[in-house]
């Protein structure tokens, strides 16, 4: 967490808060439920961003300790999707149930934060569909999020602050097992969109 990154993140948060402020201003003039729901979703996303920032800050200052528990990835992913306050409800977000192990070992809270952030990103860029998966390979649990957007490096992609990936990286790093720590990556998917991978 460099001061520069911190400054960028706070700037980003300030902007998001500004958007929320104008949404609320509009609502005071003309209250309507749809806009209120949207504003609420933005507010929730903002708070989660702040929590992400705090988590990241803590990781850089004190280090993060992962509380490893046995979790059913199927339950976990289903709940992740169900509770994600999406800004684009028209997208189809689903879990690919092939190969999902019955049980995996990770910190449900932290990985939830990470995947939430990654999902948020995917939602920004996706056209129609996002597929989330989980596999067990070589003694690691691997979560993937694939969107069908235009992939990385496309010209009209909105610049992100990097907070999401930094958070995911810190959380993966906190999952050490058999002398190996976890890792994350973001690359272009074979199908054209982006592929986020988190290995624990």
């Amino acid at each position: 967490m460099t001061p520069q990154l911190a400054a960028i993140i706070v700037h980003d948060l300030k902007n998001a808060l500004g958007v929320l402020e104008s949404e609320l201003a509009a609502l005071t003039e003309q209250p309507d439920r749809t806009s209120a729901i949207h504003a609420h979703a933005n507010c929730v996303a903002l708070r989660e961003k702040l929590i992400g920032f705090l988590t990241l800050y803590k990781a850089s200052e004190q280090g993060l300790t992962a509380r490893i528990e046995d979790v059913s990835p199927a339950d976990f992913l289903r709940e992740l999707i169900r509770h994600h306050e999406t800004t684009r409800p028209e997208l189809n977000v689903r879990v690919n149930t092939t190969g999902v192990p019955d049980v995996a070992f990770f910190d449900e809270y932290l990985v939830g934060l990470a995947l939430d952030a990654a999902l948020q990103n995917a939602i920004r860029f996706a056209e129609r569909e996002i597929v989330i998966g989980c596999q067990q390979q070589d003694g690691q649990t691997i979560f993937t999020i694939v969107d069908d957007g235009r992939g990385l490096g496309s010209k009209d992609a909105q610049p992100s602050t990097g907070l999401g990936m930094a958070l995911c990286a810190a959380i993966a790093e906190a999952h050490r097992h058999n002398g190996r720590s976890g890792s994350v990556s973001l690359e272009n998917a074979a199908s054209g969109g982006a592929l986020f991978t988190m290995r624990l």
Binding site: L54, T55, R67, Y109
Partner: peptide
């Protein structure tokens, strides 16, 4: 609170 999350448990 998320700040005391990892100290309370183990």
């Amino acid at each position: 609170a998320e700040s005391s999350y990892d100290s309370v448990a183990s």
